[in-house]
């Protein structure tokens, strides 16, 4: 009996969870190790050298790296302003798309009838190429922000809906049984049990759609040839004028924006799902 208690005690003290700050320090220290950053740095260097050689031989294919840096340095505000426009469209569209997806995910996980009605529509919407819808939306809503928001919202909608809907249904049977026996109301079950179980699924979806929202905004901008602002507009204007350096400078800014959004959502996930992280380590 005492032996068993002691054994349990050992099991309980072994996976000591380190505090959050020290964990963060640990991650930074690990990232600073050459073993972590060296492979990427080497690959990047190789790619840049290849790029530079190609641009010398075939300047119509790729612009010299120096010219990209030059156009960025000459008029940085031009890029910042247009990036800000695109980012606003992306984030607002993201907000709308995610909000609608969350509401519908709860609705279809609670009401079977709604699930049967909504899912086929959502699937068809998902397989329809949004690049094809965008011009139609521009015709319908003009060159203002509306078609951009709609395209972005549509592109982020589906991954969030599917992920959260399956997350809400991922509660283990025994947990449902326990809370059903004490007759938790649907709202209590949703709030205390289903929603927390769906959070890891929500973040998996958000990791996909945060960078995707920029794709939506850029596609919509490109489909509105009269539009005046946004990096998508900058790219389509510059490419029709053969200004490759501007095109690639804009692409670079877009890539940085996408990485930034991914970093934000990953940070949020770490905060919200510390229990999930430790659960995964516990099972490992």
């Amino acid at each position: 009996m005492t032996a068993i208690r002691a054994r349990d005690a050992v099991a309980s003290t072994t996976p000591q969870r380190s505090s959050a700050p020290s964990r963060r320090r640990g991650r930074l220290a690990a990232a600073a190790h050459p073993r972590i950053w060296l492979p990427f740095t080497v690959l990047l260097a190789v790619l840049l050298v290849l790029w530079e050689r190609t641009s010398v031989d075939m300047p119509f294919l790729l612009p010299p790296l120096a010219s990209i840096g030059e156009t960025l340095a000459n008029d940085p505000m031009y890029y910042v302003e247009n990036a800000w426009i695109t980012l606003q469209e992306a984030l607002l569209g993201l907000l709308i798309g995610v909000a609608v997806a969350l509401l519908l995910a709860v609705a279809i996980s609670e009401v079977r009838l709604l699930r049967r009605a909504i899912m086929p529509v959502a699937v068809v919407l998902n397989v329809t190429p949004l690049v094809a819808i965008a011009p139609a939306l521009v015709v319908a809503f003009g060159f203002g922000p509306e078609p951009k928001l709609i395209v972005t919202a549509l592109i982020v909608f589906f991954p969030v809906l599917i992920n959260v809907a399956s997350g809400l249904r991922s509660v283990p049977a025994a947990v449902l049984q326990f809370y059903t026996v004490i007759r938790a109301s649907r709202l209590e079950m949703l709030w205390h049990v289903r929603v927390p179980y769906a959070l890891p699924y929500l973040f998996a979806g958000l990791k996909i759609v945060f960078p995707l929202s920029i794709v939506g905004a850029v596609v919509a901008e490109m489909s509105a040839p009269g539009a005046a602002e946004g990096l998508g507009t900058v790219i389509s204007l510059a490419s029709s004028n053969n200004r490759l350096a501007v095109v690639y400078a804009s692409i670079l800014v877009l890539a940085l924006m996408g990485s930034l959004l991914l970093a934000v959502v990953t940070g949020l996930e770490r905060r919200a799902l510390h229990w999930h992280e430790s659960a995964a380590r516990g099972n490992a």
């Binding site: 283990p172 927390p196 229990w275």
Partner: peptide, 25 residues
Amino acid sequence: LVPQQPALLPWLSVERNVGLPLRIN
């Protein structure tokens, strides 16, 4: 009910896990 699996909520501490049912229904 004590089910076959513990069926504790993995994001709640032991204390909050045993306390939650008192606040339900």
